[in-house]
Simulated scan of single mutants.
Amino acid sequence: MSSERWPTELRLAKDRRTLSIAFDDRTAFDLPAEYLRVTSPSAEVQGHSPAERKTVPGKRNVEIIGVEPIGNYAVKLVFDDLHDTGIYGWDYLHQLGVEQQGRWQAYLDELAVKGLSRDR
């Protein structure tokens, strides 16, 4: 799958809690580590079908400890909880930025319905 968007900047904040990404379409996003972790494209989080998707609690203080390029189409993010199996393609990162508010609210709602917390 080829990306129509190309990142022009990718920067991890010094506190390792925000990944900033800018694209050649002039969009730019500051994506919190917690948001990236709970929306990981990995099978561990997404499952192999929508019915298998997991709600990941307890990641409020997660940090990104590594950003590794995957070819010229993606990055692998390594989190301090040692989750490192998600491959974040440029289009997926762009989609996460565009849909951040709605996706984040849906996540918070899922936590509440399931009696889970961002802290544990």
Rank of each mutant, 00 (worst) to 15 (best):
M1F: 12
S2M: 11
S3D: 02
E4L: 11
R5A: 02
R5W: 01
W6N: 07
W6P: 02
T8M: 00
T8Y: 00
E9T: 04
E9C: 00
L10K: 01
L10P: 07
L12M: 10
L12K: 08
A13W: 02
K14S: 15
R17K: 15
T18D: 06
S20M: 12
A22L: 00
A22P: 00
A22H: 03
D24K: 09
D24P: 04
D25C: 08
D25Q: 07
D25P: 05
L31S: 09
A33K: 09
E34F: 03
E34P: 06
Y35Q: 09
Y35H: 12
Y35M: 12
V38P: 00
V38D: 00
V38G: 02
S40R: 10
S40Y: 09
V45I: 15
V45H: 13
V45E: 09
S49Y: 12
A51L: 14
E52S: 11
R53E: 14
K54S: 12
T55C: 10
G58Y: 06
N61M: 11
I65T: 13
I65A: 01
E68L: 15
E68K: 12
P69M: 11
P69Q: 12
P69I: 09
P69R: 13
Y73Q: 04
Y73C: 03
V75W: 03
L77G: 09
L77H: 08
V78T: 09
V78C: 05
F79V: 03
D80T: 02
D81H: 02
L82S: 11
H83T: 04
H83E: 07
G86T: 01
I87C: 05
I87V: 12
I87G: 03
I87H: 05
Y88W: 03
G89C: 00
G89R: 13
W90V: 03
D91G: 13
D91L: 09
L93W: 01
Q95T: 12
Q95N: 10
G97Y: 11
V98C: 00
V98Y: 01
E99T: 01
E99N: 02
E99V: 05
Q100K: 08
Q100P: 02
Q100V: 01
Q101F: 08
W104E: 10
Q105P: 08
Q105R: 08
Y107C: 04
L108R: 14
L108H: 10
E110F: 04
V113R: 14
K114D: 02
K114M: 07
K114C: 00
R118L: 14
D119Q: 12
